[in-house]
Design a binder for these strands. Structure first.
Lengths: 212, 212
DNA sequence: TATGCTATTGGCCTTTGGTCCAATAACCGG
DNA sequence: CCGGTTATTGGACCAAAGGCCAATAGCATA
């Protein structure tokens, strides 16, 4: 449970070979990371808990009985699990490497590999994870605010960030300008923005599109 | 000079083996693309003309006398040349594949490869090229408008898209509000925008940051 | 020196945006 | 039927943004 000293990330390791798990686990722990091992992709999927406190990444073998590394990676993508993947392989093929990298793998290590290469990949993965995680957290926050808007308010916001005047918005929505002002004010309040510029950026980040 | 019929893209092919050039060239032309061959990376760099009319991509061998495929790819990146790269290799290594993909290669084909794999890769590359090119064209357009702004106008724009009021901007710049209004009006004119929301999006796309 | 561009400011007036207080109406779950 | 939420509108008022016309000053280049 307790890692060595400085808690700077969790590394999930998945390989059907117990000795490999043991070896990599040792390397990872010595570098100050927490290591969690699994002997199959299925086991990992059942037990893995999403990253809450510290960033994490996954070191996985390409070929395993049952679900392989590529399948696992695809599964993570499908379930929206944001966790960088580092591949290992004894007899990896170029096509497998291409596919893994296309899907966003951090790197693809051929066994046997240098310990430093692994640690460097882990460092890169955790760094990437952290920045993506930060961005993701922000987007989730913004979307939460948007969910607190009523349909009418969302509609008005869409027009506002498209640069329409209150008068024009009112015309399009078939209501009076005064009503638009009210909705607009509520939008700014709920979105916690002080200006249209800010609001525009928030919506862009949350992929909330302007109305045509 | 004249390609077969439908001009839907140019494929630059670089390989030191003339027979390979000939073979691939034939496949590419039969698929309706224009093929341009070079026997070395150096030769390509000297003679290549940037894409003006039709989209283009590059099919390059990994290992060649002199500058290799990876070196060529790096060179293109360094010079800001936006051209998708497809790698070919007879005896490619995993590390080379990883590096190529990390730098944005479309794919990495092991010789001998299926003709359809190559054509699919080319199709993907040209599609990518086109969308990137469109986006890039837009950004260049916006930056051109920004270049037409005077320093003072740029400064005001930075404050405007950060959501500041004219009064606040005036205070920060040590000038009168009236002057800010004038600059602001010129900014909206030169940037061809009708609203702060629009302006904010243009600046975001052109990576022109709001003032702190 | 003259001309042109830029920055700066003033006044005046109109349009827009935003706030406060208040009120009506529809709808929904208890 | 009542209380809570949402949508809607009104009036009064103030602040902010923009347009139009005009003017001064510094600077660089022809």
């Amino acid at each position: 449970m307790m890692s060595s000293s400085n808690e700077c990330g969790t590394v999930f390791i998945v390989d059907d070979d117990a000795s490999v798990l043991k070896g990599i686990s040792r390397i990872v722990r010595l570098a100050g990371y927490e290591a969690v091992t699994h002997t199959s992709a299925e086991e990992f999927l059942h037990q893995a808990k999403p990253s809450s406190p510290s960033p994490c990444c996954l070191v996985v073998d390409l070929t395993m009985p049952g679900m392989g590394g590529l399948d696992l990676q695809q599964r993570l993508i499908d379930t929206g699990t944001n966790c960088p993947v580092i591949f290992m392989s004894g007899n990896g093929s170029i096509p497998a490497t291409v596919q893994a990298m296309k899907r966003g793998a951090v790197t693809f290590l051929s066994k046997p590999f240098d310990h430093d290469d692994l640690l460097q990949a882990i460092s890169e993965a955790l760094g990437k994870q952290m920045s993506v995680e930060n961005q993701s957290r922000r987007v989730i926050e913004i979307r939460q605010r948007i969910r607190n808007l009523t349909d009418r308010e969302k509609e008005v916001m869409g027009w506002v960030i498209s640069g329409m005047l209150n008068k024009q918005i009112a015309a399009r929505m078939g209501i009076v300008e005064k009503t638009v002002k009210v909705h607009r004010a509520r939008v700014m309040g709920k979105m916690q923005t002080q200006s249209v510029a800010e609001l525009t950026r928030l919506c862009a980040d949350a992929e909330f599109p302007p109305n045509r």
